[in-house]
Nucleic acid binder design. Structure first.
Length: 272
DNA sequence: ATGACGGATCTAATCCGA
């Protein structure tokens, strides 16, 4: 019986925050780190930062300026037969297989300001993306049941009441509107997946992974949202929950580091 | 919803985040 520790972090520019990533890796030592918003092309990805830290394997899906995801691993990455959705939008999904576990790293579109598909094409794109996730998970359900799979990343939706600082005040705010939250839960259920963070920390306890830069004192105002997720397939459920709550870490302290990302890293140690 | 930040890019002013 082995273990796999996986971290997910929206880093908001991997080049700018290389020192923070190095510090996190040396402190937490996950087997795998999934990054979102690397904000660079694959050719500009700071590979040395990771190889120097002992992470010699990577999958990078980048583009110029914004978005972009990467998977960094201590252990060799086996090729994955990527689900169709992974090929759909290059800088939003990266897939890898490490120690027999499939890892799908997502960066779901933010969706703009206005939660109206007729007025805001970004919101329409977001809902469409989530619907494609649902269709893909439904199609892959058998495979997800057999193959240990973890789906992580910045899903840019806080699905449950206690995933936001004020359910009532955020119902019309992009990230917590009913079409988004219902769509995301629909995708989770379509694959028979488990929301590991919520399983380990049930409602009504608040969970946040993101705090806006716009609040002068993020900790004092504490207007957070849970936008970052760790989902596991049926084949991995038992192992993902085996360590209990202490196997899950949400590093709020990283929000106070110098030049912080607005998201904090989430780490889960799983039995495999 | 509030408050008015922060990163990248055609290094200025605009797009993007959410």
């Amino acid at each position: 019986m082995g273990a796999l520790t996986i971290s997910t972090w929206n880093i908001n520019s991997v080049r700018l925050r290389a020192p923070q990533v190095s510090r996190f890796l040396s402190e937490t030592k996950p087997d795998v780190l999934c990054l979102q918003e690397i904000k660079c092309q694959a050719a500009e990805f700071p590979e040395r930062v990771f190889t120097d830290a002992g992470y010699k394997h990577s999958v990078v899906r980048g583009q110029k300026g914004y978005h972009g995801v990467a998977i960094i691993s201590k252990h060799p990455i086996e090729p994955v037969d990527e689900p169709g959705h992974c090929r759909h939008e290059e800088a939003r999904v990266a897939c890898a297989k490490v120690k027999g576990v499939e890892i799908h790293n997502y960066y779901v579109p933010a969706g703009g300001d206005e939660p109206d598909i007729d007025l805001n094409p970004k919101f329409a794109h977001k809902l469409d993306f989530v619907e494609r996730m649902r269709a893909q998970f439904a199609k892959d359900k058998k495979r997800l049941t057999k193959t240990p799979t973890v789906i992580v990343g910045d899903l840019n939706i806080a699905p449950y009441e206690h995933d936001v600082w004020s359910h009532k005040q955020l119902l019309k705010v992009v990230s917590h509107t009913p079409p988004e939250t219902e769509g995301l839960i629909g995708a989770l259920n379509a694959g028979g997946l488990t929301d590991a963070m919520r399983e380990l920390i049930p409602e009504p306890e608040k969970i946040y992974t993101w705090w806006s830069y716009r609040n002068r004192d993020w900790r004092k105002s504490n207007r957070g949202r849970r936008l970052d997720h760790v989902w596991v397939s049926p084949a991995l459920r038992e192992g993902a929950l085996a360590g209990g709550r202490k196997a899950l870490s949400i590093r709020e302290d990283c929000r106070d580091w110098e030049k912080p990302s607005d998201h904090v890293p989430v780490t889960l140690k799983m039995k495999i």
